[in-house]
Amino acid sequence: MRRYFGRKLLIYGLTFFAAVTINWLIPRLMPGDPVASMVSRANLAQPEAVAAMQAYYTGLFGLDLPAWQQYLNFWGALLRGDLGISIWLFPTPVADVITRAVPYTLGLLVPAILLSWWAGNRFGAFAARRRLLDNTVLPVGYILTATPYMWLAILLAWGLGIVAGVFPVAGGYSYAMRPNLSWEFVGSLALHWFLPFLSLFLVAFGGWAIGMRNMIIYELEADYSSYLSALGAPQRLIRRYAFRNAVLPQITGLALQLGVLVAGALVTEVVFSYPGLGSLILKAIQNQDFFLLQGVFLFIVIGVLVANFVIDIVYVLVDPRTRAGMGAEA
């Protein structure tokens, strides 16, 4: 088991290293002089801001130093928590801008992932090999997984938000309020949270339901299932065993799907102008705010790595074979 976690941690460490290296390398691959083009792209009116930015970037990139030193300096700044200064919200540090947005993204993403995984698995397992459900659920599930996240979000915003007028379609809370600790504000938060959540939930739900349904069918074909039913075991018991076996690949699937789910959350936030990381990315791209973009990228990578590690731990808790050191494959 130590070997299992050691391997995993090594991979995550290397991934983080790769992500930071990408962050360092990509700006240096930019055609032309990165400092000049960034300052010109930033579209600043005041000359003193231009000068400040020019000096800041030149110092930050340290382009006159040898490459290895630039690289080490980059890591040094990163380890001090210095992700640079946002251009969009000029003198706010990128780290602050991101910390303000992260709770919204997590509040959306974590419940959507966990609930869709749980409900999708339950439902898929229930629908498998039940003719009527199988024939209706399956097509719906496939349509849902094939739906681009932003399109379902747009449809929901239009249908439930604008046409029916039940839910607000923009922002994380009512524009008439300032964040405070009152029931009214919490209610507003919940109301604005619901549609983005629903949209994320539905797309992911379709995928889990189909995956589980297919998995259960494989398990019901397996020898142990035939053996159990030959012994005269009740169908419910067989299905329960099938579910326990089928859930393991679904846990691995959750780890594999994290990137897609995060991507889905980002575009969903853009649709609803939800004040999370997705909206920050949109603003960063619109304002050519590369430091913000890089900061968000790093945050997403860290989040995905942490989530992966949590899933690894859960996997060990659920699957006794990993504990015995049989499933040491990383």
Binding site: G259, V262, A284, F297, A330
Partner: peptide, 21 residues
């Protein structure tokens, strides 16, 4: 493979595409 697998593809592409235009 494992490293590229864990890196969220869309986030990487956002950074690459935005910088390299």
């Amino acid at each position: 493979t494992n490293i590229v697998l864990v890196l969220p593809a869309l986030a990487v592409l956002l950074v690459i595409n935005a910088y390299l235009g």
